[in-house]
């Protein structure tokens, strides 16, 4: 009876969003009389940071400080239509819609400022700190607040913009089944090290090394946060979590957190993350979206590592002690692929 170490590798392509039924998101942007902007979305921030990222995107496009943008989400009764926060589509789909809406609002804001400054709107630039000025002549300037108030109370203009990003429904070729369900892929590769106990069948993940390609990391801290938490969830799905561990009877399944097995803070594996940035041509400022794919490479990498360690190929997740022990029995004991 012994502990066996093994290494496993996996690489994935992960689709951003899914247009099997068409995949639109809308955004509405408008200025308020104080010169600040509201972005209305119907997609929800689940904690992944969509409000932060769309706020950055709106501020960058409008040319105003990020503090001057408020993102209002998640009232699908009153907000513009959105397919929702799923399929890792938030940054990509909503971000593109926010850019389009912000561009329209920005052009009206510059027209309002041009009227006040008595110049051509095409000659105006923003400094990102709340001012609009004539290109090359910073002293001929007006604040975004003054421009908004002039539009609101003098000129009778609405500084507002509409945005939609639609990946249209992809038709399926009836002869070949060929279609284009996805326009943008993120990528990841992971190497994990595991230890398998051939007496108990238990698997422990000892170390994870990963590289994630996420387009441009629009908010690097949020990206790292998602990758770290998501990979932990992937590890949990690989060797712990299932609603039906005690086959064959469903009656023996877990009904609460007492019986639903999840790793706790004592079961962490060190995770060394590299973020690779290859801006996506159709992404907002090059962003794709880490989303679900942060969990995905962990599962095949762990399964491969278990095979490397003891020669047991588990093809049904999660890799529970019972499956490992059955595999060991069928193989006549542990058959490490190589001595590490």
């Amino acid at each position: 009876m012994a502990l066996h170490r093994g290494r496993g590798f996996a690489a994935i392509n992960y689709p951003i969003g899914m247009n099997l039924g068409g995949d639109p998101s809308q955004a509405l942007v408008h200025s308020n009389p104080d010169g600040k902007f509201t972005v209305a979305l119907s997609a929800i921030d689940l904690g992944q940071g969509m409000k932060s990222v769309t706020r950055q995107i709106a501020a960058e496009t409008l040319g105003v400080p990020v503090e001057d943008v408020y993102v209002d989400t998640a009232d699908s009764d009153t907000g513009p239509h959105d397919m929702g926060s799923f399929a890792s589509r938030g940054t990509h789909r909503m971000g593109n819609a926010v850019i389009q809406a912000s561009q329209e609002a920005r052009s009206v804001m510059l027209e309002a400022a041009a009227e006040e400054l008595e110049v051509d709107a095409a000659d105006l630039v923003t400094d990102g700190r709340g001012n609009i000025h004539v290109k090359g002549a910073p002293s001929r300037s007006i604040t975004t607040m003054a421009a908004s108030q002039a539009a609101q109370f003098k000129q009778g203009r609405t500084i507002a913009g509409r945005g939609i990003f639609l990946i249209p429904l992809s038709e399926v070729d009836p002869q070949t089944g060929e279609m284009t369900p996805v326009s943008c892929f993120a990528h990841a590769a992971m190497l994990v090290e595991v230890e398998v106990d051939d007496e108990t069948g238990e698997v422990a993940v000892l170390d994870m090394q990963s590289a994630y390609e996420v387009g441009r990391a629009l908010n690097p801290k949020l990206v790292e946060q998602q990758l770290r938490g998501g990979a932990w969830m992937g590890m949990s799905h690989a060797i712990w979590e299932t609603t039906e561990p005690y086959y064959p009877s469903r009656d023996h399944g877990p009904e609460d957190f007492n019986a639903y097995v999840m790793p706790g803070p004592g079961d962490l594996a060190p995770h060394h993350i590299s973020v690779l940035e290859r801006p996506a041509p159709d992404g907002p400022y090059g962003g794709k979206g880490p989303g679900e794919m942060c969990a995905n490479p962990v599962l095949p990498a762990v399964v491969n590592a278990v095979y490397d360690a003891v020669g047991v190929r588990v093809d049904d997740l999660p890799v529970t002690p019972e499956k490992v022990l059955r595999g060991l029995k069928a193989n006549g004991g542990a058959k490490p692929r190589k001595a590490l």
């Binding site: 770290r228 998501g230 932990w232 962490l268």
Partner: peptide
């Protein structure tokens, strides 16, 4: 229990 962070940042 925490579902999001993987505990390490905490």
């Amino acid at each position: 229990l925490c579902r999001c962070t993987g505990y390490e940042p905490i």
